[in-house]
């Protein structure tokens, strides 16, 4: 599913070089539920951007779902993001003046899905996250947890290869946090591959595999035993 070999990322600002990622090697299989943790500045966000095809590595090989990402153009990357990746952000990043339904339809619009099918699938995704009675609400009429569930619906609606969540619970209270985490868990049960970037240990511990970054390197990569059942 995801195969990363010898990835390096170097930022240059003037004469100063920052080696944000150092020779990262990683494989993630279909159906995995992975947490990436580490202190700020450890390189986990950079890593996330590269996996999300928002940024390119300075060197190394990144294969996502049989596609070589490294030598794709900006427009090809946009297509990959559209088809293979579902994003969930800390600050929700929903279009503010657009209804929940239309927000969820957005990725399908760029994928060229016909109007009618788009609406049906968006409704279905919103039902999946338990917001079927909020489809016409705009983001400012929704609570934080509801907003994030709309974002999750948007992330999964195009049936991506992987859902990338960047601090998805960072702006949520503990109740909403658990709601969103439960949602991720059940999506994973259904076969979705999910990768969560977080600095919160409790969040990371709810996943099945924890990768810890420090100073641009992976220092821990361990399987977690899930406690309890959903």
């Amino acid at each position: 599913m995801i195969d990363i070999k010898e990835i390096n990322k170097i930022y240059k600002t003037g004469n100063i070089e920052v080696h944000a990622l150092k020779d990262i090697n990683l494989q993630i299989q279909e159906g995995e539920f992975v947490a990436i943790t580490g202190p700020s500045g450890s390189g986990k966000s950079t890593f996330m951007n590269i996996i999300g095809c928002l940024d390119r590595a300075t060197s190394g090989i990144y294969i996502l779902d049989d596609a070589m990402i490294d030598d794709l153009s900006d427009n090809e990357l946009a297509s990959i993001r559209n088809e293979k990746i579902g994003f969930v952000f800390q600050s929700f990043n929903l279009l503010s003046r657009t209804s929940a339904l239309k927000n969820v339809e957005l990725p399908m619009m760029y994928a060229g899905v016909p109007r009618k099918e788009r609406k049906e699938r968006a409704m279905e995704a919103l039902r999946r996250v338990g917001l079927e009675d909020r489809v016409d609400h705009k983001p400012n009429e929704l609570s934080g947890g509801q907003k994030q569930r709309v974002a999750v619906a948007r992330a999964l609606v195009n049936k991506p290869a992987i859902i990338l969540a960047d601090e998805p619970t960072g702006n949520l209270d503990s109740k909403s946090t658990q709601e969103v985490m439960d949602l991720f868990k059940s999506l994973n049960e259904e076969g979705a591959t999910i990768l969560i970037v977080t600095h919160e240990q409790e969040i990371a511990e709810q996943t099945k595999r924890m990768i810890t970054f420090k100073d641009g390197e992976i220092i821990v990569d361990k399987e977690l035993k899930r406690e309890g059942n959903i």
Partner: peptide
Amino acid sequence: TREIGIRKAIGAKMSV
């Protein structure tokens, strides 16, 4: 700008 960022992250091409 933020809206543009969201649209691009979700897969809008430059031409779009």
